[in-house]
Design a binder for these strands. Structure first.
Length: 109
DNA sequence: CAAGTGACTAGTG
DNA sequence: CCACTAGCCACTT
């Protein structure tokens, strides 16, 4: 793997580690925090790598798309993503969509 | 090298 | 609210 890709993945990892328990953020929010607003797809790509490399220490399940849909649920075994969110008290609208309005966390400070 | 496909999003009608 | 689009870039075919 290329060094710049390695760096990108590591930067995504450090940002994902900041998401508080019981809160979630979106691919676009992470992309904005990295200064690459238009490349939200790459954040999803990086998360896929992270769930392979650090399935337990990086809370990749706390990242959903801008509509609250669990678009990454297939990268986890079985129903792990929804189970972890449920465990943390995230309010669901239905089986694969959460209610972002009360638990949406961002990097603005 | 060309074209299709995503863990995406904001804009437009 | 839904459908469609452009922009994005790694990866596969």
């Amino acid at each position: 793997m290329k060094p710049d890709q390695r760096d990108f993945i590591d930067r995504v990892r450090s940002l994902v580690m900041l998401i508080p328990v019981g809160k979630v953020t979106t691919y676009g929010d992470i992309a904005r925090a990295l200064g690459i607003r238009k490349s939200a797809r790459l954040v999803g790509w990086a998360l896929g790598k992270l769930v392979d490399e650090h399935p337990l220490e990086v809370p990749c399940h706390r990242v959903v798309n801008a509509q609250g849909l669990l678009s990454g649920r297939h990268a986890f075994p079985g129903n792990t993503m929804a189970e972890r969110l449920e465990q943390e008290g995230i309010p669901f609208k239905n089986s694969n969509q959460i209610d972002l309005s009360h638990v949406h966390w961002t990097y603005e400070s």
